[in-house]
């Protein structure tokens, strides 16, 4: 793998002027589309994008409006990783060089229905960058619980009443599950820290083989937040410690951000309609879970 220092940094000043995800029909203020747009600007023209069912495919390819301004394809829902692997293999077999294949899949398409294919893709070390834009529920079908929906969340299948008191499980530990494959490069990111995300995509671009980025991407529609705060809320999530920024590289974990103090979890939660119903006890449970996680990360990853 190319050493990080050798890779010229991509930022707002020097990135390509070209837009590759344009004219799409995503909700106003969509965090997922920020992730897709920025990643494609780093990856550049010679990119094949593969997207399973999910918001980004649903809003990008409605005939005749083709919002991907480079090669892109909608894949089978459970098979985005394998279809991308097929693209990479086919292009290689045809003698193509100097191209990248990328998947943009939601949390459901990644941690749930698409997981088997993703695991196979990493196991084979197929030359694919898999980006999971995590908006913490099945948003395309109208906000249902996924394996990455956090504790307490109210969704249309976890209605936060007497019998189903919102989501009762914590997020699946996707990053470490991916890292446990001994993948060459995996990272977490948030659209609230865009330069960090750009750097990670840039690093993954230069991996020959499988790489993975789990990017936290807000959804104003599903989260009950104003459209203009999409970036801010994704930053808050990191600052209050519920989302962490880390990398797994050469068999080692690395915690990219280790704040001395976290900002208020309660403030973060109370800004969002999906958490409005949560009791003090619920919030306490979220905080305890956060602290346990950080204790472990600080002990093992620093």
């Amino acid at each position: 793998m190319t050493k990080v220092l050798d890779i010229p940094k991509v930022n707002a000043k020097n990135m390509t002027e070209k837009e590759f995800f344009y004219g799409h029909k995503a909700c106003a203020g969509c965090g997922g589309s920020i992730a897709v747009r920025l990643a494609l600007k780093v990856l550049g023209e010679r990119t094949y994008s593969a997207l399973p069912a999910g918001c980004m495919s649903a809003v990008g390819f409605i005939y005749p409006q083709m919002a991907f301004n480079s090669n892109a394809i909608i894949t089978t829902f459970p098979g985005s990783a394998s279809m991308a692997a097929g693209i990479a293999a086919g292009a290689k077999a045809l003698g193509q060089e100097d191209f990248k294949t990328v998947v943009f899949a939601g949390d459901g398409g990644t941690a749930d229905i698409g997981f088997q294919a993703l695991s196979g893709m990493i196991d084979r070390n197929d030359d694919v960058l898999y980006i999971c834009y995590d908006n913490e529920a099945y948003m395309n079908t109208g906000i249902q619980k996924s394996g990455l929906t956090p504790y307490g969340t109210k969704t249309t299948t976890t209605p936060a009443g007497q019998n189903i008191p919102g989501t009762v499980t914590h997020k699946k530990n996707l990053f470490e599950i991916i890292a446990a494959h001994d993948i060459q490069y995996a990272a977490t990111a948030s659209i609230g820290y865009p330069q960090d995300f750009l750097n990670k995509v840039n690093k993954a671009k230069h991996v020959k083989g499988a790489s993975f980025i789990h990017v936290y991407a807000s959804c104003p529609t599903g989260w009950g937040t104003p459209t203009e705060t999409s970036v801010e809320i994704a930053k808050d999530a990191v600052d209050c410690g519920l989302i962490f920024l880390a990398e797994y590289e050469d068999g080692e974990y690395k915690l990219n951000r280790n704040p001395k103090e976290f900002r208020s979890v309660e403030d973060y939660l109370k800004k969002q309609g999906r958490f409005k119903h949560m009791s003090d006890a619920d919030i306490q449970c979220v905080i305890e879970n956060r602290d346990k996680k950080w204790e472990r990360m600080r002990k093992n990853w620093l």
Partner: peptide, 26 residues
């Protein structure tokens, strides 16, 4: 040929479609 050790039939057909979508015979 690129021989892909796919982990399921669903991935077998998905991978062949992906390859066909760039013009490969599969």
């Amino acid at each position: 040929a690129e021989y892909m050790h796919v982990e399921s039939e669903h991935s077998a057909i998905s991978a062949t479609m992906g390859a066909s979508a760039v013009g490969a015979r599969t």
